[in-house]
């Protein structure tokens, strides 16, 4: 075959052809090809069409994605010369998930109110401390309990008889949520405030 003949001197690579990329019918097929910077050479029987993407191992690490912009099927002459030449087009734009950064403006309003000035002035320890104090004050107000710290949290979020019920699910899952959040609220009082 073409690749067996030509590949011996030029070298071949395993590449992945992605047909109908980005659609529900996307299909991936690993094939052998001779890859050059402007073109790739495939066996004439390899199903590759214009618009397909081709993933090629990048010698710098990772994979390089190229687009088959022109596909030329050469099936004339001796069968060992039959091949498909694919000219590479511009690489598709990488699909990068938008980065959502953790910023002060995205925090809960109560946290912003309690910690804003201190945070802006660079008093990080006090800012964090005030934020957790705002949590304690709120839990005390909502639960109408005359307790503080981890004791308050244990009572308010008690999984068996919660004063404030934070579960969003039913049954066993809800019970796990209550216990989990009670531990988080207690931890916030014990370890951080």
């Amino acid at each position: 075959s073409f690749l067996r003949t030509m590949g011996r001197s030029h070298g071949t690579k395993q590449v992945v052809i992605i047909s109908k990329p980005g659609t529900e019918d996307e299909e991936r097929r690993t094939v052998e090809a001779m890859i050059q910077s402007e073109s790739g050479f495939f066996e004439v029987t390899t199903p590759i069409y214009e618009g397909d993407h081709v993933e090629i191992p990048d010698p710098r690490g990772g994979t390089d994605v190229r687009v088959a912009s022109e596909v030329k099927v050469n099936d004339f002459g001796s069968s060992t010369l039959h091949h498909t030449q694919v000219k590479w087009g511009k690489a598709p734009a990488r699909r990068v998930a938008p980065v959502r950064r953790l910023t002060f403006e995205n925090l809960h309003p109560d946290v912003q109110k309690a910690a804003g000035d201190l945070f802006a002035d660079g008093h990080m320890g006090s800012a964090v401390s005030e934020a957790f104090k705002s949590l304690e004050v709120r839990v005390r107000r909502l639960s109408r309990l005359d307790q503080s710290g981890s004791t308050l949290m244990s009572t308010a979020f008690n999984a068996k008889s919660p004063v404030i019920d934070v579960a969003t699910e039913d049954g066993r899952s809800g019970q796990d949520e209550r216990e989990g959040f009670m531990a988080l609220f207690r931890g916030a009082m014990i370890g951080i405030r």
């Binding site: 953790l102 990080m124 705002s134 959040f181």
Partner: peptide, 26 residues
């Protein structure tokens, strides 16, 4: 360290949001 402080504040924020689910005045 502002980044670390921000992460702690995010934790406090998470707990506040959980209470929001049950607090009618939130």
């Amino acid at each position: 360290d502002p980044q670390q402080a921000l992460e702690y504040l995010a934790f406090a924020s998470l707990l506040h949001r959980r209470i929001d689910l049950t607090d009618p005045s939130a």
